[in-house]
Amino acid sequence: MNTSELIEQLAQDHKLSRVKAKRILNSIFQAITESAARGDQVSISGFGRFKVAIRPEREGRNPTTGAPI
């Protein structure tokens, strides 16, 4: 399921316009993003946990040639 399908499902389930359903979904995503950016962990029971993970840099490789990027 992609975002468009999720918006459509939300609109149908709650008898909303697609525009209103999209605003609601974007608001939810924005709240999760802002909270995680502040360093908070967001837990939604039955769905998942979101947090920003800081990882050290690593060297990439060109898959064709194996050359470092």
Rank of each mutant, 00 (worst) to 15 (best):
M1Q: 09
M1N: 09
M1D: 06
T3M: 09
T3D: 12
T3R: 14
T3V: 06
T3G: 05
L6A: 07
L6C: 08
E8M: 14
E8P: 01
Q9D: 14
L10C: 11
A11R: 10
D13I: 04
D13K: 15
D13G: 11
H14V: 02
K15V: 09
L16Q: 13
V19K: 11
V19N: 11
V19T: 14
K20T: 07
K20N: 13
A21P: 09
K22L: 07
K22D: 11
I24K: 03
I24P: 00
L25H: 09
N26E: 12
S27F: 04
S27V: 05
I28T: 08
I28G: 05
F29D: 09
A31S: 08
A31Y: 02
E34Q: 05
A36T: 09
A36D: 03
A37E: 12
A37W: 13
D40V: 00
Q41S: 05
G46C: 04
G48A: 09
V52L: 03
A53Q: 05
A53I: 01
I54M: 05
R55M: 04
R55I: 03
P56Y: 02
E57P: 10
E57K: 14
R58N: 07
R58K: 11
E59C: 15
E59L: 15
G60N: 10
R61T: 13
R61V: 13
N62V: 04
P63G: 07
P63V: 01
T64H: 08
T65M: 11
T65E: 12
T65I: 11
A67M: 09
I69N: 12
I69S: 13
I69V: 15
I69M: 15
